Amino acid sequence: MKNQRIKTLISALVFFFISIGSMAQVPDEVILSLKTGDASTLSNYFNQNIELVVLDKDNVYSKEQAKQIVASFFSTNTPQRFAIIHQGGKEGARYAIGNLTTKQGVFRVYFLLKEKGQKAYIHQLRIEKQ
Results as ranks from 00 to 15, higher is better:
Ala83Tyr: 09
Leu32Arg: 09
Ile97Glu: 15
Tyr45Ser: 13
Asp38Arg: 03
Ala66Gln: 06
Gly37Met: 08
Tyr61Pro: 01
Phe74Ile: 07
Thr8His: 07
Tyr110Met: 06
Lys129Ser: 12
Asn77Trp: 11
Val30Ala: 10
Gln87Val: 00
Gly21Asn: 04
Ile18Arg: 01
Ser11Glu: 04
Asn47Trp: 11
Phe17Arg: 03
Asn59Met: 07
Phe16Ser: 07
His86Ser: 13
Asn47Pro: 00
Thr41Asp: 10
Ala93Asn: 12
Phe111Glu: 00
Gly98Arg: 08
Thr78Gln: 11
Val60Met: 09
Pro27Asp: 14
Ser43Ala: 14
Gly88Phe: 03
Pro79His: 07
Gly89Gln: 06
Leu112Thr: 01
Ile69Arg: 00
Ile127Trp: 03
Gln80Lys: 15
Gln124Tyr: 07
Ala66Thr: 01
Asn59Lys: 15
Leu125Trp: 06
Pro27Tyr: 09
Ile85Arg: 15
Glu29Arg: 11
Asp38Phe: 11
Ile127Phe: 03
Ala71His: 01
Glu29Cys: 06
Ala120Leu: 13
Lys35Gln: 15
Tyr61Ser: 03
Phe17Lys: 02
Leu100Val: 02
Gln68Ser: 11
Thr101Ser: 14
Gln4Arg: 07
Arg94Lys: 15
Ser11Cys: 10
Glu115Val: 13
Asp58Trp: 02
Asp58Met: 05
Gln48Ser: 15
Gln124Gly: 00
Lys67Thr: 07
Asn59Val: 03
Leu34Val: 06
Lys7Val: 09
Ser40Glu: 07
Ala96Gly: 12
Val53Arg: 09
Thr76Lys: 10
Arg94Trp: 06
Glu51Phe: 04
Val30Met: 12
Asp56Thr: 08
Ile20Asn: 12
Gly37Trp: 02
Ala83Pro: 00
Ile18Cys: 04
Gly88Met: 03
Pro79Cys: 13
Ser72Glu: 06
Ala120Trp: 05
Glu51Thr: 07
Asp58Val: 10
Phe82Gln: 08
Met23Tyr: 10
Lys116Gly: 08
Asn99Arg: 13
Ile85Asn: 13
Glu64Leu: 07
Asn44Thr: 10
Pro79Phe: 05
Lys129Pro: 00
Leu112Gly: 01
Ile18Trp: 09
Gln48His: 04
Leu34Pro: 09
Thr102His: 06
Leu52Lys: 09
Gln118Phe: 06
Ile50Thr: 07
Arg81Val: 00
Asn47Cys: 01
Val30Asn: 11
Asn44Val: 00
Leu112Arg: 07
Leu125Cys: 03
Asp58Lys: 14
Asn49Trp: 01
Gln104Asn: 14
Ile97Leu: 13
Asn49Thr: 12
Gln65Pro: 01
Val53Asn: 05
Ala120Asn: 14
Leu125Asp: 02
Val30Thr: 10
Leu42Lys: 03
Val60Thr: 15
Ile50Lys: 05
Arg94Cys: 02
Phe17Cys: 11
Lys116Asn: 14
Ala120Val: 08
Leu113Lys: 01
Ala96Leu: 12
Asn99Gly: 02
Asn47Val: 00
Ser75Thr: 05
